[in-house]
Simulated scan of single mutants.
Amino acid sequence: MTDHNATAFQSDIPTPYYQIDLVALKQNLMTVQRLCELSGAKALLALKCFATWGVFDFMRPYLHGTTSSSLNEVRLGKETFGKETHAYSVAYSADEIDAVLSYADKIIFNSFNQLSAFKDKAYQANIPVGLRLNPQTSNSSFLIADPARPFSRLGEHDVAKVQAVLGDISGVMIHNNCENDSFEAFSASLDDIEAKFGEVFHQLSWVSLGGGIHFIAPDYPLEKLAHRLKQFSDTYGVQVYLEPGEACIHGAARLVTTVLDTLHNGKPLAVVDASIEAHMLDLLIYRETAPVVSINHQSCQLSQKQTSDSTIIYGKSCLAGDIFGEYELPAPLQIGDTVAFGNAAGYTMVKKNWFNGVAMPAIVICDEAGKQHLQKSFSYEDFKASLS
């Protein structure tokens, strides 16, 4: 994310806090909107990635609705975003399906069993029904996030069995990309999907191709992607849906922290008042490094070389591996310095937790004029209420 106004990030709001930058968010959303205009596809925000509804009014004009992974998410999408609301879950329980259907505009079942169990309720509610398909191929660099991993439970793959239930469904969802920034890889994968399920697509009215397509990259051939999607739509006579999560919010937020302590144990060490375990959990899950986007409110381009003088920035939890990353800094960090970590929107606020009782970051919105607004803060009472 580029600082459109360095002074905008100076604040009297106590750290830690997540800061959403509406200027950067708008840049992503305009790219999503352009892709939809060129291709005829519809874009649904994936709430599993980003569900900070305080900016939904800002996002709504650029998107067609939301897609969910649970009863809570589909309800949140209906109540706070509106427009189209797609409901999906790996497995619905019998005691929640009625509530799900009350909020959904479409419902997508993960398996033949789920379809058989709940399709009649969906018909009675006049809700279009879909089924998740698994092409058994994917574009994912991480096994943990690979929908086509061995023995995957995510969707059905038997074409003959899918054809047998075509009378029960009007569409399908296929999600087999994860941070895929290659148009060629996406197009080749779609070729494989068409070869396997093409006859199925001809008998449907809509197809969701899921998310995980990193088409907001500066050098991504957006027009080629749009042409490929339109070609797919025209070939089968279907409405194409996309489910962007990261593509909507990439680079549009940061986690702002303060250095609480500095140490030296073979290398310079610094401890900030946040935690990857509690506040940027995907760094721990995927063993990634958080980008530092500013120090003391000044933008910086940092090398991530690991040298004898490079600084390891730790979180404040008791987890030994609570590490934001190792950085070659322009100057040693001092107690009281402000350090802001980038890419703090996707899979961060939706996964934040109260591990160690570490203070929960507030949520702050920086508007297009560079003014900050405190959207939500958290207290001891919130911590206490999360337990029993």
Rank of each mutant, 00 (worst) to 15 (best):
A104F: 00
K119E: 15
F58Y: 13
S70N: 09
V162A: 06
N113F: 07
Y103Q: 07
F58C: 07
S89F: 01
S93P: 00
N177F: 11
V100T: 04
I108Q: 10
V90R: 11
D146Q: 08
R149L: 12
A94F: 05
S140E: 06
A148E: 03
D146F: 03
A145F: 12
D105V: 06
D146W: 00
N176I: 10
D57Q: 12
T137V: 15
V129P: 11
E84H: 10
V165N: 08
A117F: 00
L101Q: 08
E156C: 14
E79T: 10
T80N: 12
P147Y: 01
R60H: 12
S68V: 01
N126G: 00
F81C: 09
N139L: 09
A91I: 00
P147E: 06
N113I: 04
Q163I: 02
D168W: 04
S102D: 15
P150Y: 01
S93L: 09
S140A: 15
A125R: 14
V129G: 11
Y103P: 13
I127E: 01
Q163K: 15
L76V: 11
G65E: 07
E73R: 06
V162F: 03
N72E: 13
D120M: 05
N113C: 00
D120S: 12
S68Q: 02
Y88M: 08
A125T: 01
R153Q: 14
Y62N: 06
V74G: 05
A122P: 13
E73S: 15
A94D: 15
G130F: 02
A160Y: 01
L131T: 07
L143F: 06
R132S: 07
L115E: 09
P128Y: 02
S141L: 04
Y123E: 11
H86E: 04
A125P: 04
Q136D: 05
G155S: 01
Q136H: 07
D146C: 02
F112T: 02
S170G: 12
V162D: 06
V159E: 14
A104H: 08
S93A: 13
G82R: 04
I144C: 04
N72W: 02
A160N: 14
V172A: 09
V129H: 03
N110E: 07
H157C: 13
A160T: 11
L63K: 04
V165Y: 00
T85S: 15
R153L: 13
S138W: 08
H157W: 13
A117C: 06
F112M: 11
S152L: 02
F81P: 05
F109C: 10
P150Q: 01
P61R: 05
